[in-house]
Amino acid sequence: MDFPDELKYTEEHEWVLIENDVVTVGITDFAQDQLGDVVFVELPETGDQLETGKPLGVVESVKAVSDVYAPLSGEVVEVNNDLPDEPEMLNTSPYEDGWMVKIKLADVGELEGLMDASGYQEFIEQD
């Protein structure tokens, strides 16, 4: 399983790519593997305000429905509109084609709470 070093991670199995005060968010390789074949993705709309820990969207595999939680608070500035049409990209390319949303952060200080790749790997091994 792959956990790129340049990303930060949450306990809800999301990854975050930080570019100044805008972050790109998706689900980790571990999360997509646990879910199995993803067949449906529901995303927020540009302009939506997200609050840390509140649902950001929904990912459905053949077997189950899973909420995806906002890793950070802020405004949605871009969504991956290709994803609802090709939800399998979450399985095949979780860190690139499968990105979900870009969020303009309300509070850059929230980034402190995220794990780095080795911390996340430890977290899933303990879990």
Binding site: G36, D37, V39, S61, V62, K63
Partner: peptide, 20 residues
């Protein structure tokens, strides 16, 4: 295989993936 409980049994729910 990924194993799950089904009807009191430990059974494989998938190997390579449900769709495949």
């Amino acid at each position: 295989a990924r194993m799950v409980e089904f009807g009191g049994w430990e059974m494989p729910v998938q190997y390579a993936g449900v769709i495949a």
